[in-house]
Design a protein around this nucleic acid. Structure first.
Lengths: 254, 254
DNA sequence: AGTTCAAAGTGTTAAGTTTACACTTTGATT
DNA sequence: AATCAAAGTGTAAACTTAACACTTTGAACT
């Protein structure tokens, strides 16, 4: 038994896991990033490892939501974020398709050949604020631009794809772009979030008007400093107002 | 071992199930209905039974999609329909909360106290076309108006609620109302579907213009007969055209 | 100190969409 | 022949979206 076998394994449900797709937005590169882990390799095995989404088996007594929060924290130290269920993935062979996935599972699971079903979660967070630190069976935990992500472990590429589709839909439908930005942000930054994720160009004037007319942004008495051009006003998202308005009107689409 | 224990139980994953929320629309009563089963009671047990969503454990070798199709067919004989994953439900105590749920599980499961996680599916079908017939552990399989549904077994009321919310969102966002109607339908019937499910009133002229402008309905050279008023034209949904258009424009919202 | 640069900020018009609103037609039933 | 119930139809006003270009500002560079 390796380190990873220690402790709570009796408390784990051996065939159900959670995986977390955590998105962040890099304001310098203007790129959508995703949080990935690189798995610790057992020296007995020789193989090229894949990057993976942070995920692990759930505990008997946890809800899925609790599992997702715990697992993400255990592997990346990221906590206090809102995770939303995406969907369940359960192809019978999802953990067997690749030889190194199987080998890797043998190093951390008492029942490595069990069919494992996973509940995927996703989240939008401020990449600047949350700096991942690897622990448990994660060797590294890093932010990686979504466009650079190579093939991932198990069916994690498929999960990431679904999460990205869900993100695009959500961005068009609900005001969620703010979650990817610092608490105080400029309208230009917000526009970049939309343009980058949706892969479209937006007219600056129309975008501003539309956003401001939703009446859920508060302009602060503060400007962004240190930029090599006219300094823009900072805004923050008015959560309370949004919640109040949400019940009245249906449409918060872009 | 009772009847239900027979056969494939070794092939079943004892802690993962699927549940199906199948919606139909009653054109006479203008009501949204849902497909429910009444469970067979074991004569050894005395309890008031609940209605339940059709659902059961998945098999080891199946995908979730396959499980949902199989289980729905086994319990209600309904087949050849499109089922879409809603989400996973996995509260640790979801099968223990009610005494009669526990008793009932003891009559059909070799491991009745296992924590069972369920993957919920939902579907929109033409209630006239699909007449459920109970089999397996279902004593009855019936269509019931959603507004009349009593408390259901396990957390099925919660699942039904989520499915209904998903249906409302989908109806606003994608042209799915047709699935609840016969292949040939009138615009008045379509409007009723929207009005009933969304719980709103719509202006007839505006509704027709909007629907027809989407360019995904084909007016047939045929009118509805036997109605005690001016006979309306029948329409059908143009699936091919919809798929072609879908890639071009984003918005099919009502 | 002056120039350059890069993004911020700003308004208007035309086109398109949505809303509100009422009467005539038709076919079956009595 | 009269009645009923829903089908079918058009327009104007309000609102929303799309398309479009120039000036301002602050930092960085000379």
């Amino acid at each position: 038994m390796t380190d990873a076998f220690e402790g709570k394994e009796l408390d784990l449900v051996q065939n159900i896991s959670v995986d977390c797709v955590v998105f962040g937005f890099d304001l310098n590169a203007l790129e959508l990033n995703v949080l990935l882990i690189e798995r610790k390799k057992n020296p007995d095995y020789e193989y090229e490892d894949f990057f993976a989404l942070p995920g692990n088996l759930i505990r008997q007594s946890e809800t899925f939501d609790q599992s997702a929060i715990r697992v993400l924290k255990e592997l990346t130290s990221i906590q206090d974020i809102f995770l939303e269920q995406l969907m369940a993935f359960g192809n019978p062979n999802r953990t067997y398709l690749k030889e190194n996935d199987r080998k890797w599972l043998q190093t951390i699971r008492p029942q490595p050949d069990e069919r494992v079903v996973t509940i995927a979660y996703y989240s939008l967070i401020n990449l600047e604020k949350y700096k991942p630190t690897a622990s448990s069976f994660a060797k590294k935990a890093i932010w990686m631009p979504v466009k650079d992500v190579p093939e991932l472990a198990f069916d994690h590429s498929q999960i990431l794809n679904k999460a990205f589709e869900a993100l695009k839909l959500k961005l068009r439908t609900e005001p969620v772009g703010f979650n990817l930005l610092p608490r105080k942000f400029t309208l230009g930054q917000l526009q970049s979030v939309y343009e980058t994720i949706l892969g479209i160009e937006l007219d600056k004037r129309n975008f501003r008007r539309k956003m401001l007319n939703k009446d859920i942004l508060i302009q602060l008495d503060e400007k962004q400093k240190g930029v090599a051009h006219k300094s823009p006003y900072l805004y923050k998202f008015d959560q309370a107002k949004y919640e109040a308005l949400r019940d009245q009107k249906f449409d918060f689409s872009l």
